[in-house]
């Protein structure tokens, strides 16, 4: 059984159908890249899998715990306890970091372990310092988020997510809010996590990165998964016309800049 299983997820915003029956599996230790044009529903999919949005119908389970299912056309979510367990198994890294501005870097990372997991503060602190040194940010522990560069803030937010020992990490365009010269440091962190066999699902516009790091790529367009397969197959020699058009547009943009 895959670690994340989603079957036939549908999601509307009012009359707008944003996800039109998405199915996907993510195995343990796998890195899945999600690509596709703007507005295709990539963020919405991630937000459904991390419980920031509720689905209209379909099934989701994470780590063998059922999050939501649909019977006779009625979508039902699991009891709050199960949902909380799933929440703790999943981490999400936002495009705009969303660090807590009133907490120091260290406290951004320790707050959830201490108050959600009830970890002893000293242990949480040790762990946070370890994660910070892993992100090469040990000397920034006592800074406040506004004192950091975008790339540093994003690395803190990754450390904050990792502090809860999640089983899977979701990234929604983790480098899109960063200057081009800062994207590298984030991609390196994700690459290192992949090497440690962290299960990850990454929405990205960095095609070269997706090709290198992902075990599998899915291409979404207008709320459906059009292709699901090996990175080379989708990114290097795509057969689908829409994917070709998308990659061409991308190539041009990259070439122009």
């Amino acid at each position: 059984m895959a670690f994340i299983e989603a079957k036939n997820i549908k999601k509307n915003f009012g009359r707008l159908e944003v996800l039109k029956g998405i199915s996907l599996d993510v195995r343990e230790g796998e890195v899945l890249a999600v690509i596709g044009p703007s507005g295709s529903g990539k963020s919405t999919l991630l937000r459904c899998l991390t419980q920031l949005e509720t689905i209209g119908s379909g099934e989701i389970s994470v780590g063998r715990v059922k999050m939501a299912g649909t019977e006779n056309g009625r979508c039902r979510y699991a009891p709050a306890g199960d949902l909380h367990r799933i929440q703790l198994m999943t981490g999400l890294v936002f495009q705009n970091f969303h660090l807590f501005p009133h907490f120091s870097v260290l406290r951004n990372i320790t707050e959830a372990p201490v108050h959600v997991l009830k970890m002893p503060p000293e242990e949480a602190r040790e762990k946070a310092l370890f994660l910070l040194s892993k992100m090469s940010l040990a000397e920034k522990a006592d800074c406040y988020p506004y004192q950091l560069s975008g790339g540093q803030q994003q690395r803190v937010s990754i450390a904050r997510a990792l502090a809860l020992n999640p089983k899977v990490l979701f990234f929604d365009e983790p480098t899109s809010a960063l200057d081009p010269e800062l994207t590298g440091e984030i991609l390196k962190v994700i690459r290192d996590l992949a090497r440690e066999k962290m299960t990850m699902m990454v929405v990205t516009h960095e095609m070269a990165f997706a090709r290198d790091v992902a075990d599998r790529v899915i291409f979404m367009d207008q709320g459906v998964v059009i292709e699901d397969g090996a990175p080379d197959k989708i990114l290097v020699s795509p057969e689908n016309e829409r994917i070709k058009a998308f990659l061409n547009r991308f190539g041009e943009e990259n070439w122009k800049s």
Partner: peptide, 18 residues
């Protein structure tokens, strides 16, 4: 307060009250 602050709290497992 930006919506992202609530969402960050939520995905880290904080209750609404926390």
């Amino acid at each position: 307060i930006p919506k992202g602050q609530y969402e960050a709290g939520r995905v880290l497992g904080f209750s609404q009250r926390q």
